[in-house]
């Protein structure tokens, strides 16, 4: 059996190699366009962090900091000593964590329930369109109308709780609901509402991609729903999970449009890293570049942690390592024989 497979492999190899050039040809447009229109501008942005650019430079070349008589880390020093920068990083993390955790719980719970064979839930396709609807309207006047309606809804809810605390009906204190009317809470709620549909769609894609037999086997062995989800569904949809994670992390860290609805004030309650970059870009492009480096660094570190902790296929990695070792040994044996 093994011999036969090996023979087939040897036979087909030249054919595959003859067609290999098409692999290069088909990948070429992406590589060229990506290098020109993303990598070069990115390098340019990052290069600005070491330049002196205090106003719009237009066609002129920016000068390095050392040419202006500053040390090379001058911009980093200025940004890292600014209180507004640290506030923006803190806010970004606060909003991201506050958004991702409830959003994922809600989206995955709904997706699991709607795809469960035993529940026979109906109307998933219509609900999918409805959940993604706020995202379709985002960025328009209707989108902001939607946002303001949501704000009003939660605002009146919080107001009722206020009233309850005023008459001291249930023993609540006034301060207990302070956070319900605060701006960060509203921002998180609206972000969840806007982004939740996308996570839901991809969660359904991931869960329906797991073969039914696996679920049946888990059910046969007496696993309950929670166990099935954590030990069967999540490991089986690992590649789609990576996709969802990166989508969420990049969107959350780069969030600026929803905080911008509330307008920026001096107490910097809704200043995110992205809005810090946008504000700095108006006057000091070099500081905005430092912000870009920090944003890139955070995205890379957080996505990298997720990738190496959860989504890397450790078994396959080990298998590949073993195969490589075997091949090397075989080559060595062959070399000795000849």
């Amino acid at each position: 059996m093994e011999n036969k497979e090996a023979r087939i492999k040897v036979k087909t190899k030249p054919i595959n190699r003859r067609y290999a050039k098409w692999g290069y040809i088909f990948a070429l447009p992406f590589i060229v366009l990506y290098l020109i229109f993303t990598f070069v501008p990115m390098g340019n942005s990052l290069y600005y962090a070491f330049c002196y650019v205090r106003h719009y430079i237009g066609y002129a070349e920016p000068k390095l900091l050392s040419q202006e008589g500053y040390p090379w880390y001058q911009n980093f020093k200025e940004v890292f000593t600014a209180a507004s920068f640290w506030d923006s990083v803190k806010n970004t993390f606060k909003f991201s964590i506050g958004q991702i955790i409830p959003e994922w719980i809600l989206a995955f719970w709904l997706a699991v329930m709607m795809t469960d064979r035993r529940l026979k839930f109906k109307g998933r396709k219509i609900l999918k369109s409805i959940f993604v609807f706020p995202k379709l309207l985002a960025g328009s006047t209707v989108g902001s109308l939607l946002t303001s309606f949501l704000l009003m809804f939660f605002g009146s809810f919080a107001f009722k709780l206020y009233m309850a605390s005023m008459i001291d009906g249930f023993g609540f204190e006034f301060e207990d609901f302070e956070y319900l009317t605060s701006m960060p809470f509203f921002i998180i709620i609206v972000s969840i509402f806007m982004h939740f549909g996308i996570t839901f769609i991809y969660a359904v894609v991931g869960i329906t991609s797991v073969p039914v037999e696996v679920f049946e086997a888990a059910e046969m062995d007496g696993a309950n729903r929670l166990q099935t989800f954590f030990h069967v569904t999540i490991p089986c949809m690992r590649p789609v999970m990576l996709f969802i994670t990166i989508l969420s992390v990049v969107d959350c860290l780069g969030m600026s449009d929803i905080p911008a609805i509330f307008g920026y004030s001096s107490d910097r309650e809704n200043l995110t890293l992205q809005s810090y970059i946008q504000m700095q870009a108006g006057q000091c492009l070099d500081r905005a570049s430092v912000g870009c480096i920090v944003l890139l660094f955070l995205c890379a570190v957080i996505s990298g942690i997720f990738y190496f902790a959860f989504f890397r296929d450790k078994d396959e990695e080990a298998l590949r390592k073993m195969r490589r070792k075997e091949k090397r040994e075989m080559a060595r044996a062959r070399g000795e024989a000849s």
Binding site: L296, C299, A300
Partner: peptide, 25 residues
């Protein structure tokens, strides 16, 4: 190339804007 795609997925698209601005002009 496969690894490259997974790595560049993590780059937020917003950070290219400053450099792109200057290149275009």
């Amino acid at each position: 190339f496969n690894k490259f795609i997974i790595i560049v997925m993590m780059i937020p698209s917003n950070i290219t804007i400053i450099g792109y601005y200057q290149l275009v002009w």
